[in-house]
Design a binder for these strands. Structure first.
Length: 269
DNA sequence: GTGCTTGTTGGCCA
DNA sequence: GTGGCCAACAAGCA
């Protein structure tokens, strides 16, 4: 499930432990895929005794910092979760990292093991953090940058282009559908087919959906009923705007939901 | 048993 | 080298 808003929410869940020392670190299953490329057996020694000092997210990537030099990267993949449990909680089947503090445990679990845990020791930020694309809500996410990207990916369906993390960090399957539905663009449209005005509209919509999604997750713990999100997986689901029956098909290799009436490209505004 | 899943990567091919 | 496509990864569910 985790796309940008859920990732941002997950990051904040662990923030309850900010300013507190890590007493002990448990790695119940060091061989799971989440740890590929990481010396996870060294983690307990590196983190124990350090204070959890800050957290940040960019797109789907989260970084938690410990003391001055500890950088813990977490990517939730398809099924990763960050939760808080009691100080003495015992690891369950899919719990892969448990950071014990005096009053609680910070728990990372991941059933399908598509997530990823990274660690870096040093004052300077690691490459896997500094090389991420500029956030959608930053000043560097410009119309120009988006237009250029659409031109470069001119032969690829927009549905797939919007999910490319190198330009749209945090956008996944459902956000891509939501954005295209709101912008009234058919998901199979090739990126190169958008007129400049339509490209600018798409840019605006990417930012708007991102902003609104974060806000609604904070307020209501759900997305509004007039969003495609709430209807996309219902069999026989209806477009919340025009009440036509929604279509579903695989586009760009992922299940895609759209309104055949609102998203025709030649439809009048 | 089959086929599907809201993510990413690496290999293949033009 | 670049862009586009797709199978593979693991586990659970219908």
């Amino acid at each position: 499930m985790p796309e940008l808003p859920e990732v941002e929410h997950s990051r904040r869940v662990w923030d309850v432990g900010l300013g507190q020392k890590i007493l002990k670190v448990l790695v119940p299953h060091p061989n799971v895929r989440d740890f590929r490329g990481t010396e996870v057996r060294a983690l307990p020694n590196l983190l124990a005794g350090q204070v959890f000092s800050s957290s940040q997210a960019n797109g789907k990537q989260i970084v938690f910092r410990f003391g001055q030099a500890g950088w813990l990267g977490i990517h939730l993949g398809m099924s990763g979760r960050l939760t808080v449990d009691s100080a003495l909680v015992e690891p369950r089947k899919h719990d892969h990292l448990i950071l014990r503090q005096a009053k609680r445990s910070l728990v990372f679990s991941d059933q399908r093991q598509f997530g990823r845990v990274l660690f870096h020791q040093g004052i300077e930020a690691p490459d896997w953090w500094t090389r991420l694309a500029p956030p959608i809500l930053s000043d560097q996410f410009t119309v120009k940058a988006v237009s250029n990207f659409l031109l470069r990916r001119r032969g690829t369906p927009l549905k797939a282009v919007l999910q490319m993390q190198e330009r749209f960090p945090g956008v996944g399957n459902w956000m891509a559908d939501e954005i295209l539905w709101r912008a009234r663009i058919n998901p199979a449209t090739k990126a190169g087919e958008l007129e400049p005005a339509a490209a600018a509209n798409l840019w605006r919509t990417v930012r708007r959906v991102t902003r609104l999604a974060i806000a609604s997750l904070q307020e209501d713990w759900d997305y509004p009923a007039n969003w495609l999100f709430r209807h996309r997986w219902i069999d026989g689901g209806k477009c919340p705007r025009c009440h036509s029956k929604l279509s579903r098909a695989s586009i760009g290799g992922r299940t895609t939901c759209w309104c055949p009436k609102c998203q025709r490209n030649d439809a009048p505004e």
